[in-house]
Design a protein around this nucleic acid. Sequence first.
DNA 1: CATCTCCGACCTGTCTGATAGCTACATTTA
DNA 2: TAAATGTAGCTATCAGACAGGTCGGAGATG
Lengths: 224, 224
Amino acid sequence: MKRLYLSDTVAGEIGSYIAERKLSAGDRLPSVSTWMARLQVGRSTLREGLKRLEAEGVIEVINGKGIFVSDQQTFRLFSRLHVTDARRHLLEMLDVRLVLEEKAVVLATQHASEAQFADMAQHLEDYRAAREADDFLRVHEADSAFHLAIYQASHNEVLVALIRSIHSELYVSWQTPQDRNEVFDASFPHHVTLLEAMRRRDIEAASSAFHALMAATRHTVEMM
Amino acid sequence: MKRLYLSDTVAGEIGSYIAERKLSAGDRLPSVSTWMARLQVGRSTLREGLKRLEAEGVIEVINGKGIFVSDQQTFRLFSRLHVTDARRHLLEMLDVRLVLEEKAVVLATQHASEAQFADMAQHLEDYRAAREADDFLRVHEADSAFHLAIYQASHNEVLVALIRSIHSELYVSWQTPQDRNEVFDASFPHHVTLLEAMRRRDIEAASSAFHALMAATRHTVEMM
DNA sequence: CATCTCCGACCTGTCTGATAGCTACATTTA
DNA sequence: TAAATGTAGCTATCAGACAGGTCGGAGATG
């Protein structure tokens, strides 16, 4: 049933090229004319393939410079989701985040290395320092980094890929300018408790600390 | 910093056209030459814009027919995930699926309407009939439809959007041609038990039935 | 010698005209 | 009536051309 277009084949071909050579962010790919000769296709066909890879976030084509491997793909998960009730939407997102991150917490408690725990501790320290300096941007960055570190420590690549993809859409929305202090002050102690529990490899305690953290977050959303 | 290319403007323009007129799946868009005249751009530029929208899953361009609004966006979550160990990858996917779908099961048990339960029952009946006819394609379709129905009955739009987006990548992979019978035969009874428990609004029973189902699936993967 | 300017090689962005192939539908034909 | 054919409209692809961005080196300038 699936129609096969040359331009899609081109996209696959170039994607394979990247995968096979294990190229990473910033690496440069052969030029358009090189690919035209190599794949024996016309210019427009090739560019359509490139455009598709670009839309998928695999590559970046820069005028005058060349074709480069992109650092990460960004998707638009909710771009076509018609959100009528913002508060309800936030609560639904929290539900999804809850189950994904709880899994990450459990896996991280089991599998995280000491270096990864140290990494998390550093993010928490940044968190505290930024809060003290009333630098909310950095507070949020540190908070994000802490949670991302948990996902990474889960050693589940699918989970990491998934959360990286939807992170911006899943986490950003509740950054209301109002009452930031409350949100952060309420959740910070739970962060500390969570990290300590994970470090002790105490799944029960880690899980319950995480639930307490999410309960606090949910509470602030429900108050909105 | 963000460079503005005409082809991206085109994509935005056509996207707006769809949003403004609230077009939905299957609706037909003006032809390429119409757009060329309307936006005053060349054909290749326009087609690059279309290719981007196509990659984002917004539209579908079919040779000889025209340009149509697509029913769902599909993004490629694992396109850049270098999978070295297929078996481990499958197990990781199962972990992610487990937590997402368990949440869906619980929510569906609480919130599903009778019509939605009837829908699930119909899919199960299709499942059984297809299995009897040894029509594995339809077996898989019915199975997919059953699980998707659970997500939809959860009434959590974020969950639905998420699972719709990654469904093809999260579920397709273990369709190994070999031993299909075993997989399906082992899991079918659990499907029935699961539906009955949800229908009774018995969260405990539904949850444990779902776990049994996933345990069976995990078992077959681990045997691979 | 150090610095600046300019030019040319190489790259991508866009346009245009032409051709082939696909699809749906009306028309003709057996 | 049903199959074959013609046709209009559409997308897929190609080839060539030109404009504009980027970068580094040759040469001018001090």
